[in-house]
């Protein structure tokens, strides 16, 4: 028994060594009441090992390496946005946040390279990032949706919750779903209203939901 316990501790310690020291944890979690995650004691954001690798901040000329690099950036951006509940990422603002700059290494991803990363994420073709981002403004490429879940995945999640809680054929208001007390434990709680609408529209298109009402007082019925 003891022999099986000792080695199992080893990977755990190496995993935690990537995370930042858990000091002052409770503060940021308390500030965000919109945070849908049920855990009151959220661990600090764990950067991937590549985050501390200086060449990560220079786009690699070798196509194979670059593909791995873009994949890693895509993963980092998704998990970072998920952690901070950032639905739309403004590149101009984000470029100076720890997401894109590592002051300890004195390295940063340039705005142009960050745009390349998001372009790649938005690409749904083979060899692309599988539509994990979408430019909101295609012209200046400054604002983009970050899809740690794509709209169709959000739609499934919401429809699934409605089904599980037996609320099919019941009219639910948008507010109830996004901000209501029933959904506080759900990942879509506190969701961006536009993305919420976007996801619901996919269900409406497939005839699985119907949206009622006007701007402020919208409701939805799932079939």
């Amino acid at each position: 028994m003891a022999s099986s316990l000792t080695p199992s501790l080893a990977p755990a310690t190496t995993a935690t060594s990537y995370t930042l020291p858990p000091t002052g944890l409770s503060e940021p979690t308390r500030i965000e009441p919109a945070n849908a995650l049920p855990s009151g004691n959220q661990p600090s954001f764990a950067y991937p090992p590549l985050y501390n690798f200086p060449p990560f901040y220079t786009l690699q000329p070798n196509t194979t390496t670059r593909q791995a690099q873009l994949q890693a950036w895509s993963g980092l951006i998704q998990s970072y946005c998920k952690y901070h509940r950032t639905w739309r990422l403004s590149l101009v603002d984000a470029i100076d946040t720890p997401l894109f700059r590592n002051d300890a290494l004195n390295r940063r991803l340039s705005l142009a390279d960050a745009q390349t990363v998001l372009d790649w994420m938005a690409n749904k073709d083979a060899g692309g990032g599988g539509g994990r981002a979408e430019w909101i403004s295609t012209k200046d490429k400054s604002l983009a949706w970050i899809y740690w879940r794509r709209p169709e995945e959000w739609a499934e999640l919401i429809a699934g919750w409605v089904d599980d809680t037996g609320q099919k054929n019941t009219v639910l208001t948008f507010y109830e779903l996004m901000e209501g007390e029933m959904t506080t434990s759900q990942e879509f709680h506190g969701m961006d209203p536009d993305l919420f609408q976007k996801s619901l529209n996919l269900l409406v298109k497939r005839g699985r939901a119907q949206v009622f009402g006007s701007e402020d007082q919208q409701g939805v019925k799932f079939f």
Binding site: P55, Q60, T65
Partner: peptide
């Protein structure tokens, strides 16, 4: 991997990631 953000271009071994 290449790093262009130092004084001189540096080349890193990915085994150190």
């Amino acid at each position: 991997w290449i790093d262009l953000q130092d004084e001189e271009t540096t080349y890193w071994s990915p085994t150190f990631i």
